[in-house]
Write a protein that binds this DNA or RNA. Structure first.
Lengths: 338, 338
DNA sequence: GTGAAAGCGCTAACAC
DNA sequence: GTGTTAGCGCTTTCAC
């Protein structure tokens, strides 16, 4: 770690450490002259105050913990980029952890972080279920938490999502308008909050358009790409195969492309698809994929802003128990028929 | 931050703080009985030692700083995932920063981190140039650094790359074998190390196959997607337009797809392309993209392993000044003609 | 406007 | 096997 300290600067300048500290922190009770001397020497020696000594003393770490269920995913990368743009101007740091969609790991990370390593948390919870019992350790704590995208519905804090219901409704409606009558809904887990909202929208769209729904249209997939492809392929071999697909996550749209490649079924002629996705190259797929995308960068910025406000100002109230809903954007491409 | 401390545990158990500390750290000089009592209470109260007090005392932070030029990129996400799998078993944390391909920002992050916030660094340097003068602040420091992918050639430490020369050679050779005679090489900046190696391979492949090279075949692109597309589109309108493209980074292959979409030129019939890329859905593009991919996860693991070895063992020698070369993998798809 | 001293929570050297 | 003490580098009373 660094070797040059405030004490050292103080000796060099024949000042007390406290004076140097105050000068560095631009305290008004220090003369302009002393300030300059201190700042000059600090710059010359490339002095950086020891962050851990400061953290210990001030009881705050100036770092935010981030837990995401998956790292190789544009959506989450964009969110984190958004967070970093705002945290860095406040001198805050980002400790990012991947829970790998695993509640156990999520819990471990949480325990680790609650030891005081971070001043606040941003989470998108693992998709196994949303019972979120493992989040109880957070509840007796004062550490502010913000959830986004994959949110627990019963945790009293601020949450950020996009309008899943509306987007699901619009996505399904678009398929219906394009002539689809057997529209399946692909979901990773029925338990997870975003899936649920999107599904509600889908179901209501069917109802509104008088399309009789069948339970088998809800296709619950898993985390194994190979198994999902198999599952989907078999679905398309059936006599009453679907003519429309609404994928609640990008991963499942990709699996659908791969499953279809194994059959003779053509998209968009025989089956149309639209998917929730933040991929930047939806236009380059074959055929180009119609998507519903989320303002990921904005979500990240907003999460960070909420926390920066709470952390950098005095006497801020606790984070409100509310859900902020941001609009998603629908982009129509050939996968739903041009 | 956390409120329950070693001192508190000590009072509860009528022991000295030092005894509690030793018990928690499983020191052999503590009786099994006391150990159990301490551990039990610690578990019951969910005690986590204050990481910053520990860092201050031990003069190490148990965290690694990571600086990448771009976050929304599968390659870097995979590398970080790889690092995390190994750091987490050693109790190390990852502080990740995005330099946005900007040397100034890279320098700022570096100065910040050198204040003692991290025990070691992993970097993939910004692509503006590889003069790496801004890395000089690192040179007088003892902080171990490992570079990967975008490496400075004149910095005495361990670097990890893939066999760019060979891959470039093989990529170009493949295009030649497929009948291409005017093969352009797309590069983000001529200065950057990986681009150079890949280009050397490309040039040698041309020479080995007696293809007369023209300077205009090296196409230096920028960071603006729109401008790159324009540049490429114009290239394809020329009379002696290229019939082969070797893209040294994924981004430029995507720009080529988009540029071609504006013309009547068909891939792979009239022009073939292969690109360095770690994208997982190369097979879903139209046409599927032949790729040369890097073992990103492995690279991340290896970087972390090198640092863990240096940091967790006593009297480890400094990181050797050498370059470890990992093999890349070539996957042929329709973009180069099946 | 500056200095002296205490203490954040932890570990380690030194008692005993 | 356990306790006492000092100190990591910083900020912040409290003096003057």
């Amino acid at each position: 770690m660094a070797e040059i300290t405030i004490k050292y600067l103080a000796e060099k300048l024949k000042l007390a450490p406290s004076t140097v500290s105050r000068a560095l922190n631009d305290s008004h009770e220090i003369s302009a002259n002393t300030k300059k001397k201190v700042l000059d020497l600090a710059k010359e020696l490339n002095f950086q105050p020891n962050p851990y000594a400061r953290s210990l003393r001030e009881q705050k770490s100036k770092t935010i913990g981030v837990i995401i269920p998956e790292r190789i995913n544009n959506f989450f990368s964009q969110v984190i980029d958004g967070m970093e743009t705002v945290t860095k101007v406040h001198g805050y740091h980002l400790l990012v952890y991947n829970s790998n969609e695993d509640i156990e790991q999520e819990k471990n990370i949480l325990t680790l972080l609650l030891g005081g390593r971070v001043d606040a948390l941003v989470m998108s919870i693992s998709g196994q279920n949303e019972k979120s019992k493992h989040l109880d350790i957070l509840k007796n704590r004062t550490t502010p938490v913000v959830f986004f995208d994959r949110i627990p519905h019963d945790f009293p804090t601020t949450k950020l999502i996009t309008n899943g219901y509306e987007a699901g409704y619009n996505g399904a409606t678009h398929l219906i308008k394009k002539g689809c009558r057997k529209i399946i809904f692909l979901v990773l887990s029925k338990e997870i909050s975003i899936g649920k909202e999107r599904m509600r929208g889908y179901l209501d769209a069917l109802k509104a358009h008088n399309i009789p729904f069948e339970n088998s249209w809800i296709v619950v997939c898993g985390h194994s790409e190979a198994k999902n492809i198999d599952l989907l392929e078999n679905l398309f071999y059936k006599l009453d195969r679907p003519d429309g697909v609404l994928a609640s996550v990008e991963k499942l749209a990709l699996a659908t492309y791969r499953a279809l490649a194994k059959t003779n079924i053509k998209m968009p002629d025989q089956v149309k698809m639209i998917s929730f996705s933040n991929m930047k190259i939806a236009d380059l797929l074959n055929p180009p994929l119609s998507t519903i995308s989320q303002p990921a960068f904005e979500i990240g910025k907003e999460c960070a802003n909420l926390l920066m406000k709470k952390l950098t100002r005095k006497n801020q109230p606790d984070l409100e128990d509310k859900t902020i809903v941001l609009p998603s954007q629908i982009s129509l491409r050939e996968s739903t028929g041009k």
